[in-house]
Structures are given as C-alpha cells and as structure tokens.
Design a protein around this nucleic acid. Structure first.
Length: 471
RNA sequence: GGCGGCAUAGCCAAGUGGUAAGGCAGAGGACUGCAAAUCCUUUAUCCCCAGUUCGAAUCUGGGUGCCGCCUCCA
C-alpha cells in the first residue's frame, strides 16, 4: 500500500509520487496576519499539519512551507485605523498566530516566508512575466494577461467565458480582460511601497505564493494546499503566474480542505459569524479541537457546534482514561509475569497496519480515529481480563498509541509532576482508605468530594486507588 | 447562468457492488460500600422514486432538501 491523494487538478484520486524520491515539497497557504485567526482558519492548519506528519511517518522527508501574507488591503486598513505601521501589525499577529497554532499542537513549518521580505523574488517573477508577454503594465500597475495563458481555468474547470459570465468583478478600463489580475499595484497615498521597475508600489496578493513557494521548493511543488475557497481565483492565478514564467508544471497535487460551518453557514470574518481559535481554546481542550477536526474527512464540510466539541471532549476523556490505565499498568508491572500474551500483542501491529491503510486512502483521518479507538477497546479489555499483564502486550500497546499519536497529536501531554501537590493528594487518599477500612464512608466520601472540588477524580481499583486531574 | 459539495442511528461520522467502522448520548447487566473507570448486551435496511444487477447505502436516471465557489475569504 502507498498513499493515494485526491488531486483537485484532475478531480480523481492519484497515487502519490513525489518529484524527488523520498522528499516532499509541501506548500500551504497561510494567514493574512491582520487579526487573530478563527476556528475555521484553524482547520487547514490542523489537517495539513496532520498530513505533513503522516508523510513523515510514512518515511518521507518533508519540507513544509507556510507563508504569512503581511502586505495586503486589510493589513493596510487595520494598520491605518490603529495608527501603527503595517509591519508592526504583522509582527503582532504573527506572534499571536504562533501562540494559537502552538496551543493547537500545530507543528511549526520549515519556512514561514513573508511577502515583504521577498520583494526581489516577486519583482523578478513579475519581470519575467512581462518579458514573456504574459503581463503588461498600465500606469504603474502590472496585470497578468489571462488570455495569454490557455490553461487558465484548468483548476476550477471553467473557461474564461464561464468565469466571466458569473463574475461580480468591477470593470477596470485599464485591464485588457476583465479577469486579468494585479501582479503589482502602484502606490496609493498612505500605503507602504517598494521600488520597482514600474515605480513605487506593492505586490498583488497572488504573486507572493508563486514567488515564495518556488524559492523554497523549486519550480514544481509536490503538494499545495489551502481552503477550498482559494481554488478560484487564488490558486488558479498562482498556476498561471508560475507556469507562464517557468513553462513547467507548478504543482503535482492540489488539495483543498472543506469549510468549517457554523449554523450550517461558512464561518468567515466578512460574515461576522466567527469564533477565534483563541476563544475556542478557552472553552475546549486543544486536543478535543484537533480530534473534532480529524473526525471528518478533510474535504467534507464540518459543522462547528458546542455539542460536537463536547462530544469530542468526551471522546478524549475516554482516550485519556485508557492511556493513563496503560501507564499505570506499565509502571506497576512486576518481574516474572506472564508471557503468554502474544496473541493480544500481535493485535497492535495489525491495527497500525489498518491505520496506515485508511490514511493511505486519501488521508482518511475519520477512519483513523476509528482505528485509534479499536486500540482503546483492545487495551481496556485486556487490562480488565488480565490480572498480571504481559509486558509484551503493554509495550505493543504503548508503541501503537505513540505511533498513531506522532501523526494525530491528541494524546495527553506527559504528566508534569507537581511534587508537593501529589504528596498532599496521596496523603488524603491514604486517609480516605483508612476510613474505608473502618467503613466510615461519610468521612471517605467527604475526602473524595474535597478532592473533586479541586478537580481530582478518584478511582478505586483492585490495585489501589488511582487519581487523575479532570481536564 | 457555469462549476462543485453534501444527505448514513437521538447527535457526530467512516464505508463507493455482497446484507452497515468508530465516537458521543440512552437503556439493561457485571463490578463497587456508593461512585468513577471498565467490560458485556442493546439502539440504522443508509432523503424519495424508478432502473441496472443474482445482489446497491455503494452504479444509472429523475426528484427533494441543504451548502459552497464564480468578489476579499482557510
């Protein structure tokens, strides 16, 4: 088995074969850093983080690039409103991006290029396009000439005529074709600008991704991802810019995630129906948010709701219980225990194989969560039925969870031992167990309630009383 | 108008020809001083109609409903 990906360019699932054997160049469109990102924006960050991790799990060396758009209309508008520079605004929200993305368990990219730091590459690309007759200057603006690029519309499967007929774009007299788009915008009053062969100005939005992705990943990328709303025009334009300039295929696999909906409607800043990732993180554990995102296929729309997140949270608690029970069993294992658990131990590699199979099929994280919980069930059943667990089973189980978690990133973090607190809790538990021996249940329940008020949950098991923090 | 997506149990959601994964919630049982956790049992003929097929949630045609893109947007 090997990975098969749904390629939006061909609208079919295709075997994944990278340009360079063993290596993957992966570019994902990043945020415009004019505000906190919302939970809908978080979807691609999380799902493509998982795809990247899966590629690494599968043995590829991945170069993952995600840009920050730091010069753009909304950036300028907000900076002016707040009386700060665009650069200051960008610095601020890049910092905020990392806070939230880190909290969500999104691994950092290998490169996070900024448009404003790649003016040479951008201007170089625009110059090439003009030289090759694919772009033209008009009063300090430079436009891409869509009619010079026959493949235009290949990604969105629309002809120029079809695209135009439904278009709601403003007529611009200086454009040769209504769908021509800006590569370079002449400076306006109150806007940051950079020198260029066409005068002072700033880059259009689409050009930065073409220029920066090719700089870091070469002229043909393996994977380019983003939200499905970027298919047109953003990604269509990226293809036009890159391929008109290089004459080579720009991207082998285009993948787009479905929207996150709220009240059955797309969550977006312009609709005003958004919840920032930060606000979501205050309400729900990050791992529950990740699990929620992974519980549906990445191309399907998912509906964000309080109920869905609470369900995800409960599912995580089940995983936590299993993981902590497994940890207890491992910590407390004794020498000379049984070693006849081979059959059970063998279940885990088989489950991992299943995980691999479903993930290889266009990255089916929803099915993968099923496999994860098959593992949970297997562990729970084994621990219940086995008084003296076979270390081989425990190790196989732990390996299974760690391997899957290297991709999904939803296991609880390692318990941080706050020494003093633990000792105090242990003491109370001992006192409670004394009371239970005396059958002084009112005292023992009092202690349990006291701990519960501190978020400590007790479990009486044949091996003694366990405690854990309730998240 | 063009392009595209979705419709599976109370809720979330896999499954694309051989009689429905997984999670949440519910019910009954086991265990427990009571709990908690866990285990066992239990809860669906897959939007509707017609067709193809020995056989369809899965293919074809038609219908209904919902959503998105074609403008900034993950």
């Amino acid at each position: 088995m090997s990975l098969v990906l749904y390629n939006d360019l061909t609208r079919t699932k295709e075997p994944f074969i990278p340009v360079r054997k063993g290596h993957v160049g992966f570019y994902s469109c990043g945020p415009t850093v004019y505000d906190y990102f919302h939970i809908g924006n978080a979807r691609p960050f999380i799902v493509f983080d998982v795809l990247r991790r899966y590629l690494e799990y599968s043995g590829y060396t991945v170069t993952f690039v995600q840009n920050f758009t730091d010069i753009e209309d909304k950036m300028i508008a907000r900076a002016n409103r707040e009386g700060i520079t665009v650069r200051q605004l960008a610095d601020r929200f890049i910092g905020e991006y990392y806070k939230d993305a880190d909290a969500l368990g999104v691994r950092r990219a290998n490169h996070n290029p900024l448009a404003t730091e790649h003016m040479d590459e951008i201007i170089g690309l625009v110059s090439t396009l003009i030289e090759k007759g694919h772009a033209y200057e008009a009063d300090g603006d430079v436009f891409f000439d869509v009619s010079s690029f026959p493949k235009y519309g290949a990604l969105s499967k629309q002809s120029l005529e079809e695209l135009q007929s439904g278009a709601r774009i403003e007529i611009n007299e200086r454009k040769k074709h209504p769908l021509d788009f800006a590569l370079w915008k002449a400076k306006k009053e109150g806007e940051p600008s950079w020198p260029s062969p066409w005068g002072e100005g700033r880059p259009g939005w689409h050009i930065e991704c073409s220029a920066m992705s090719m700089k870091y990943l070469g002229e043909t990328l393996d994977i380019h991802s983003g939200g499905t709303d970027l298919t047109f025009p953003h990604h269509e334009n990226e293809i036009a810019q890159a391929e008109a300039a290089t004459g080579k295929p720009f991207v082998k696999y285009w993948i787009h995630n479905g929207y996150l909906l709220i009240d059955k409607e797309k969550m977006s800043k312009s609709l005003g129906n958004f919840l920032t990732a930060r606000a979501a993180l205050e309400k729900f554990p990050a791992r529950a948010i990740r699990f929620f995102m992974l519980s549906a296929h990445y191309r399907s729309p998912i509906n964000f709701s309080e109920e869905s997140l609470l369900q995800a949270k409960s599912a995580m608690e089940r995983l936590d219980n299993c993981w902590s029970d497994l940890g207890h069993a491992i910590t407390n294992r004794k020498k000379g225990e049984r070693t006849e658990g081979n059959e059970t131990a063998a279940l885990f590699p088989a489950l991992e194989e299943k995980f691999r199979a479903v993930m290889d099929d266009d990255f089916n994280t929803a099915a993968a969560t099923g496999v994860l919980f098959d593992g949970v069930k297997t562990v729970n059943t084994y621990l219940k039925e086995s008084d003296l667990p076979d270390p081989a089973v425990l190790e196989a189980a732990e390996t299974f969870f760690r391997k899957l978690d290297s991709v999904m990133g939803i296991l609880p973090p390692e318990a941080s031992g706050e020494e003093g607190e633990s000792a105090g809790i242990e003491k109370l538990i001992a006192e409670r167990n004394e009371a239970r021996k005396r059958k002084d249940f009112s005292r023992s329940d009092e202690i349990r309630d006291e701990l519960a008020a501190r978020g400590i949950v007790l479990e009486d098991t044949p091996e003694g009383t366990k405690w854990k923090k309730k998240g």
